[in-house]
Write a protein that binds this DNA or RNA. Structure first.
Length: 863
RNA sequence: GCCGGGGUGGCGGAACUGGUAGACGCGCCGGAUUCAAAAUCCGGUUCUGGAAACAGAGUGAGGGUUCGAUUCCCUCCCCCGGCACCA
């Protein structure tokens, strides 16, 4: 083996050894199973730093578990359907299928060069008919069960391109390509009744104690269970139903508001042109919740009146753009005194505000200025006829009881969660297996005709779905009556693809069933790792889909992911220049030179190519738009995979965002080179595999203690805490000490051998190639991963003396050395005797002494 | 707008259960080595004062609880993620 560290030669050689030994096959030996999964990538072209980080975390955990003797399944696949392939097709005329498959081939090669312990025999891509046929098969099952159904939904419509736009394709209310003002349009779509599972999805969050609390909270809020009442208001021969969480405020309702899409609004508009214009106005703009929530609240009186079910009063009915058709009943009773949005609306349109809940003593109700206290449930009912004097809860119950008596309402639970719309008016996705027949209606494709294959040679041009112009795909005889019929051209939401891929990895080749017994053997996933941006949608849909498959008898688990780690984003500095029109041109950090002052502060940034200054634009998520992406491949080519892996694990804990730094990569590289040369020195003195020291001098004892402390610390960080940065810091600290240790006798030499054996094994999950090679260099022929995780020798951890901090009034004034386990009195006496401590205690009265054994003494003095 | 998270030296971060703030790394400063440079090695590095010992200040801002707060509580500011058709 060469004298210097040459990862470019070393890493492929080690990878070859692993491949030949089948080292990464999941089914190996008879250990406990451990399913370690990362969110599969969208094949966008090449690997970016976010992928690199995600898969390194997954690999570190996988390899650590392998060293614990487990059978580890670490699979990889491709979330291969989706919008970017269509955009690429529009840009360069290449069919999405070809673009996608080329990208997969390239990215697979990149992943392999990083040395991940992936079982490649299980690879899958969602654009393969062998995969998506099961989407279609299961969709038809759901249709039979009534979980899938059809209704209309609202989409973004580009009137120029005559096409449906994704939310991200709507920029400032306009289509991204045409610049046309976007409209809302209602179209028929398939939905899944996720709301039927809302209660279970909420309840079982409690069991997910391996999930970050914040993700569970976000999901709970998203599902948004609220207990309230539905109330019916008569309006002529119609009834308007509303849902309210505050029936206790019913006596304060002063008007009604309905969504622009509400049937009553449409009816009222028929002979009211002004209202029709207003409703049309409400159709402008995008459909995203953020757009709707931030737009100005607008409304118009319909002229219709609703009858208050308890008082008989007439309330005006308004159309308001802040009422959502998709939530509750698409109509609300407005109680401006106790709801902030209603208050704002009432103030704007001069509608009455009637306080019905009392405020804390001394606070008056100001009907010109909102205060959050108005929405509280702490007061009692006032101005509420016979209900006055009741608490909010009692008022709630009494009013609901009276509504039930009058058949004008009842208690009801409402979820914020809406049913999942799964139809997409897109080409590059899984075809929905339905045939439209003029005589038979919507007919499911018979199971034996699955999969409905997506033609792979089409090129979208931005004006709608090209499947609509593809006769070979469209024309098909009706399966029921045989007459000419037409295929559904909508495809499935790509969230469907990603909702069950982890169930397929255990049985990738099975062409008889969606999943089989091996899926049950591996499920649930022991550790799932992916970006925090998926905290709600993907994770909720995957949980839902798992429950659907459970109820179909296909899997036995209730929840798919036992433990979840949400990694932060990868960021980098941005640099730009502004031209005269104020437009910014962005420069890649790799092309920028920095000057610093003598404190290391950056004083000037210049572009390398012309030496002229550029402006720092702050630290941002790596993105094409800011040109601040750092290509992992370039770094792997320069430093090797282990260095890049090491730095990406060292720079930040996994849950936090990680700021990329080329200088930091340099530091990781230096560390690995020191390891290499340190081992070279040791080898020069002769190796003795398995040797352990006998009696050591104090320096040796200290080094050995640090070794065993490091084994405990690093094991805890890898296995429990998942703070790889602190594990690596501990390994750096230990290796610094080891490199400085000068062995003077046989015992010392055996100690150094023990240290290198430990270090090679401890660092193996992070830098597997280097570790494997160190292991071989210090005298072993097998794999370091088969050697397993080292054991802590408790005898090595014993200390003769420890440092105890002495504080006076909470400030550190000195340190004393003490035997571990020293009693209060001993520590207190020694503390008071300390020279600097005496200066601060002097003649003052000691009021109290706090002793934390083996740690700290705090002397509280007066004056 | 709503939901969730974050803010610690020049920089990335550490401090795990309320107990030494700044581990480890980067950068910077000084030294060794070198004809010279790179690389490497050694030492220093929160700020202020001081030759030093040491003292004072200090974890986004303000307040509180405590012998003791980066950690717990309240108010505020700023940054980031998600908001159902980006994945």
């Amino acid at each position: 083996m060469s004298e210097n560290y040459h990862p470019a030669a070393l890493e492929p050689a080690i990878q070859k050894q692993w491949d030949e030994a089948g080292a990464h096959r999941a089914e190996r030996g008879d250990g406990e199973r451990f399913y370690c999964l990362s969110m599969f990538p969208y094949p966008s072209g090449k690997l970016h730093m976010g992928h690199m980080r995600n898969y390194t975390i997954c690999d570190v955990i996988s390899r650590y578990q392998m060293m614990q003797g487990k059978q580890v399944l670490q699979p990889m696949g491709w979330d291969a359907f989706g919008l970017p392939a269509e955009n690429a097709a529009m840009a360069n005329g290449v069919p999405p299928a070809k673009w996608t498959r080329d990208n997969i081939a390239h990215m697979r090669g990149q992943l392999k060069s990083l040395g991940f312990a992936i079982d490649w025999e299980r690879e899958l891509a969602t654009c393969d008919p062998e995969y998506y046929r099961w989407n279609q098969w299961f969709f038809l099952k759901l249709l039979e069960r009534g979980i899938a159904y059809k209704k209309t939904g609202v989409v973004n419509w580009d009137p120029v391109d005559q096409t449906v736009l994704a939310n991200e394709q709507v920029v400032d209310g306009r289509g991204w390509r045409t610049g046309a003002l976007v409209e809302k349009r209602e179209i028929p779509m398939y939905y899944l009744r996720i709301t039927d599972y809302a209660d279970e999805l909420l309840e079982s969050l409690d069991q997910l104690d391996g999930w970050p609390e914040r993700v569970r909270t976000m999901q709970a809020n998203w599902i948004g269970k609220s207990e309230g009442a539905e109330v019916s208001f008569a309006c002529g021969e119609h009834t308007i139903k509303v849902f309210t969480t505050r029936p206790d405020t019913l006596m304060g309702a002063t008007f009604m508001a309905v969504a622009a899409e509400h049937p009553l609004a449409k009816e009222a508009a028929r002979n009211n042109p002004e209202l029709a214009t207003f409703i049309a106005e409400c159709q402008k703009g995008g459909v995203s919740e953020a757009d709707i929530a931030t737009q100005e609240k607008l409304g118009m009186d319909t002229g219709l009146k609703a009858v208050h079910p308890l008082t008989g009063d007439e309330l005006p009915i308004w159309v308001a753009n802040y009422v959502l058709m998709g939530y509750g009943e698409g109509a609300i009773m407005a109680v401006p005194a106790h709801d902030e949005r209603d208050f704002e609306f009432a103030l704007k349109y001069d509608l009455p505000i009637r306080q019905v809940i009392s405020l804390p003593d001394g606070q008056g109700f100001d009907d010109q200025a909102w205060d959050d206290a108005y929405a509280a449930k702490d007061g009692e009912l006032v101005n509420s006829a016979s209900y006055s004097g009741l608490s909010c809860q009692a008022g709630f119950d009494a009013i609901v009881a009276d509504l039930e008596k009058n058949a004008a309402g009842k208690a009801r639970v409402q979820f914020r969660l809406r049913d999942w719309g799964i139809s997409r008016q897109r080409y590059w996705g899984c075809p929905i297996p339905i045939i439209h027949c003029d005589s038979c209606g919507d007919v499911p494709v018979p199971e034996e005709d699955l999969p409905v294959r997506l033609p792979e040679d089409l090129v979208p041009d931005g004006s709608g779905n090209p499947l609509n112009r593809c006769d070979d795909f469209l024309n098909v005889p009706c399966p029921k009556c045989g007459k000419p019929a037409r295929r559904e051209t909508d495809t499935l939401d790509t969230f469907v693809d990603s909702s069950w891929y982890f169930l397929r990895y255990p049985c990738p080749g099975n062409d008889q069933a969606m999943v089989d017994a091996s899926t049950s053997q591996w499920m649930p996933v022991d550790q799932y790792i992916g970006g925090i941006e998926h905290a709600i949608l993907h994770l909720l849909y995957a949980r839902f889909w798992t429950k659907l498959m459970r109820d179909e008898g296909l899997v036995s688990v209730d929840e798919p992911f036992a433990r979840l780690l949400t990694q932060g984003m990868v960021l980098a500095e941005t640099y730009y220049r502004e031209d005269e029109s104020g437009r910014r041109q962005w420069f890649n950090p790799a092309d920028v030179d920095l000057e610093r002052d003598d404190k290391g502060r950056v004083t000037r940034a210049t572009l390398r190519s012309d030496g002229q200054p550029v402006e720092p634009g702050g630290i941002e998520k790596m993105a094409k738009s800011k040109n601040n992406g750092v290509d992992p491949q370039a770094l792997v080519d320069q430093y090797g995979a282990d260095t890049v892996r090491l730095f990406s694990m060292f720079a930040a804990p996994p849950e936090q965002s990680l700021e990329w730094s080329d200088a930091g990569v340099e530091g990781a590289w230096r560390f690995l080179r020191r390891l290499w040369s340190g081992v070279s020195q040791h080898i020069a003195r002769g190796v003795s595999p398995g040797a352990r020291p006998g009696k050591l001098e104090s320096e040796g004892r200290e080094l050995r203690r640090l070794l065993h402390e490091s084994i405990a610390k690093v094991g805890d960080d890898f296995g429990r805490r998942y703070t790889f940065n602190t594990a690596i810091a501990a390994l750096m600290e230990f290796s610094n000490k080891l490199n400085r240790f000068e062995p003077v006798n046989e015992q010392d030499h055996a100690l150094v051998q023990e240290c290198w054996e430990g270090l090679a094994r401890l660092i193996a999950p992070v830098t597997p190639h280097l570790a494997e090679s160190l292991w071989q260099r210090i005298g072993y022929s097998g794999s370091v991963f088969e050697a397993g995780w080292p054991e802590v020798d408790p005898a090595a951890l014993v200390r003769d003396s420890i440092t105890v901090v002495v504080q006076v009034n909470g400030k550190v004034r000195g340190r004393i050395e003490a035997e571990p386990g020293s009693g209060r009195d001993v520590l207190e006496q020694a503390a008071l005797a300390e020279e600097n401590v005496q200066r601060f205690v002097a003649d003052k009265a000691v009021r109290k002494v706090i002793v934390v054994p083996d740690k700290l003494v705090n002397i509280v003095v007066s004056g």
